[in-house]
Simulated scan of single mutants.
Amino acid sequence: MIGRVEPLPVAENKPPLLVLIGPTAVGKTKASISIAQKWNAEILSGDSMQVYREMDIGTAKIRPDEMGGIPHHLIDIVNPDETFSTADFQRKARETIEEIASRGKLPFVVGGTGLYIESLIYGYEFSEGGADEAFRLAQQQYLAEQGEQALHDRLRAIDPPSADRLHPNDHRRVIRALEVAHLTGIPLSEHLARQTKESPYRLCLIGLSMERTELYRRIEQRVDQMIAEGFAEEVRLLLDKGYARELPSMLGLGYKEMAAHLAGGLTLEEASDLIKRNTRRFAKRQLSWFRHMTDIQWVETGEGKNFSKQMDEIDAIIAGKLVLKANESINDIQ
C-alpha cells in the first residue's frame, strides 16, 4: 500500500499536517479518533458551523465523551451572532497548528468545508478587492424584496462555479461573491483558481468516500437522530436568546428549516424532509468541491468494509506521505 504513495522529502523542512475530509455523515468523526490516538495527533475542526457555541445537535458536533482523550480545537469559539470568515479560520488554524506542533504533536484537520480546508492547506491570500458597503446593502435589499433564489440566480449569471458551490441560503457568502466580482471585475471562482496550490505544509490529505445510496441513507438516519435528540428545542433556545433567524449561523443547514417549523411555517415532518433533501444536496456540493483537489488519497468506507483494514490503509498513506512513525513526536522528524 505504501508503494503507491510518493513521500515528500523531509529535506523540504515543512511542518507536517494531516487532513481528513469527506462529505457529511461519511464517518469522519469515528475514523479521526482512531487516527489521532495512533498518530499522536490533536484535532482541529475544519467545519464552518462547529465554530458556533450552543449549536451542537444540528452541527453533529462531537461530544466530550466521544473524543477519546484527544484534544479538539476550533470548536465553540464564537457566539452565533458573531461573524467568522474563511480568513478568520485560516488565521486561527495556523496559530493552532503552531501550538500543537510546539508540543511535538501532529496537527490533524478534520472537516468538510472545502473552502476552509483549501484556504489553510494552500495558504490562500484574502485580498479580493476590499469592500463596498453600498453595493452590499443593495444586495441585501434585493434579497429582502426578491428572495434568496433570485439573489443566487444573480450570482449564477456572473459566476456559475461559485453558484454551484454556494447554497442559496448562504446569503453572506453569496453577497460576498457578488461583491468581489463587482469590485474586481473578476469572478470569485477565478480568484480562487489563480491561488497557488503549493502547500506551506508537508501535507497528507485523505478523503473518505462512500457509495452514494448508503451515504444518503446515513444522512437521513442522522437527521432522524438529531430530531430525536432535541434539535427543535436547541433551535428554540437559540431564538429565545435573541439570535435572529437572519443571522448567517441561523441560516445554516438544518437551523433555517427548524426555525421555519417553530415559526409555524412548516410541520416537523416537512422540516425533517427539507433538512434531509438539503443535506443530500450539500453532500453533493462537497463531493464536487473535493473532486478538483488533486492531492487527495481516497479511502472507501461504509457497510461491508472492514474498519480495521480501512485504518491499515490510512496508516500506510500517513506513513508514506509524512515519513512518520505511529506515536512518534513530530520533533523527531524536523
Rank of each mutant, 00 (worst) to 15 (best):
R277H: 14
R277G: 07
N278K: 14
N278T: 15
N278R: 11
N278P: 05
T279D: 03
R280N: 09
R280L: 10
R280Y: 15
R280K: 14
R281F: 13
R281P: 08
R281Q: 10
F282E: 15
F282T: 15
F282Y: 15
F282L: 14
A283K: 04
K284P: 03
K284W: 13
K284S: 14
R285L: 04
Q286E: 12
L287G: 13
L287N: 12
W289V: 07
F290K: 02
F290M: 00
R291A: 13
R291N: 11
R291L: 12
R291F: 08
H292F: 06
M293T: 13
M293C: 09
M293S: 13
T294S: 09
T294W: 03
T294L: 05
T294E: 08
T294M: 05
T294H: 02
D295F: 02
D295T: 10
I296E: 01
I296G: 05
I296N: 01
I296C: 01
Q297C: 09
Q297Y: 15
Q297W: 12
Q297T: 14
V299M: 02
E300W: 04
E300N: 05
E300S: 07
E300G: 06
T301D: 00
T301V: 09
E303N: 02
E303D: 09
G304M: 00
G304R: 02
K305M: 10
K305H: 14
N306C: 11
N306T: 06
N306E: 05
N306F: 02
N306P: 05
S308R: 10
S308I: 11
K309N: 14
K309C: 11
Q310R: 09
Q310T: 07
Q310G: 08
M311A: 06
D312A: 11
D312R: 06
D312E: 09
D312S: 09
D312G: 05
I314A: 07
D315H: 08
D315V: 05
A316Y: 06
A316W: 08
A316T: 07
I317A: 04
I317P: 00
I318V: 08
A319F: 02
G320S: 03
G320N: 02
G320C: 03
G320E: 01
K321C: 08
K321I: 08
K321S: 08
L322W: 05
L324D: 01
L324S: 06
K325R: 12
K325S: 13
A326W: 08
A326K: 10
A326N: 06
